[in-house]
């Protein structure tokens, strides 16, 4: 199934960057990546990825804060001699990066660590605890939000990648106290039990219906494949999406369209 969200394509970028050596990761690295991306995918450049690469050079040239003067800016790998678990020993002094974005219609701005995930930013900095974390491998989809109108797993991209973006969470889906038709449908069709997967499931369902207002049962099942639920056995979730489709949910959108 192709459409599991933009964020899947950014898989582990953060880890890749942290694992690179200082020599590789110099200002200009991002521009190089961006150029390579354009060359590799002419005419179909992923705008989120491109924006992230461009942002990267800004991060890399960010001066380090006072306590670390004379220290390398990035984590120093001191080798793992004596470590039985194989973890590199690191001392970390992380620069903060300022980001500006719109979340659930409100303009927000914060200094964040570049490694902070979008879901952590939403929960910890903004208190948007309606969006939850269910796994650490981007399998469960509980953290699904919309980024510029398209679903992404917010555990699978960095907060800094959302620079300039419009993010919609489950908390921003209802408008003026009126539930989104998909929210209504989940209640009507008993599409949730414990409710933990529900924010992600609803956000993915909204996205699915935006793309395909009249999906077949199979299209719904495939379209929700990236979101795990342990309670419902999915039958009533599928029914909820069908119900929402029948009640015009596909005509609605949330957040700004990319």
């Amino acid at each position: 199934m192709g459409r599991l969200g933009v964020a899947d394509r950014h898989l582990d970028l953060a880890l890749i960057i942290w694992s690179m050596s200082d020599e590789t990761l110099n200002p200009g690295y991002g521009a190089g990546c961006a150029a390579a991306l354009v060359e590799r995918t002419p005419g179909a450049v992923d705008p989120g990825r491109l924006a992230f690469y461009r942002l990267l050079d800004g991060l890399l040239s960010t001066p380090t804060g006072p306590p670390t003067s004379g220290q390398p800016r990035r984590p120093t790998v001191e080798g793992d001699a004596g470590h039985t678990c194989g973890h590199a020993q690191t001392t970390l002094e992380r620069p903060m990066t300022k980001i500006n974005l719109t979340v659930d219609g409100a303009k927000v701005s914060d200094d964040v660590e570049p490694r902070m995930l979008l879901v952590q930013y939403l929960r910890e900095k903004l208190g948007k605890t309606g969006t939850v974390i269910g796994c650490d491998t981007s399998n469960c989809g509980a953290c699904t939000v919309h980024l510029n109108g398209t679903s992404v797993k917010s555990c699978n991209m960095l907060a800094v990648q959302a620079e300039g973006a419009e993010v919609t969470t489950i908390e921003g889906l209802a408008q003026n106290g009126t539930l989104h038709p998909v929210q209504e449908a989940f209640r009507e069709c008993h599409g949730l039990q414990c409710g933990f997967c529900t924010p992600g499931m609803i956000m993915q369902s909204v996205d699915l219906l935006n793309e395909n207002p009249n999906p077949s049962e199979e299209e719904i099942r495939l379209g929700l494949e990236g979101n795990l639920c342990r309670c419902t056995g999915y039958q009533n979730i599928v029914k909820s999406v069908q119900h929402a489709a029948a009640h015009g949910a596909g005509a609605t959108t949330s957040g700004a369209q990319a």
Partner: peptide, 10 residues
Amino acid sequence: EDQRLITGRT
């Protein structure tokens, strides 16, 4: 239960 669970007011 559903009102709070479908709106993220959990």
